[in-house]
Amino acid sequence: MSDNSYRLVVSVIGTLAGAFIFFGGYVAGTHGWWWAGVLVLALFPIINKLISH
């Protein structure tokens, strides 16, 4: 795989992990903090930038 592909897959995995953590908390609680779920999407560019050169 190329460097870009690795970055893409690792970022997707990180974002998915964040989404599952949020979802676990969301359904366990009082269904609040929905905006935190939107913020999970920000994980993708953050991780992608962190693992770039």
């Binding site: 795989m1 460097d3 690795y6 970055r7 995995i13």
Partner: peptide, 9 residues
């Protein structure tokens, strides 16, 4: 899975 791929990268 992410750690493994990150290591390979």
């Amino acid at each position: 899975a992410g750690l493994h791929l990150y290591g390979e990268m």
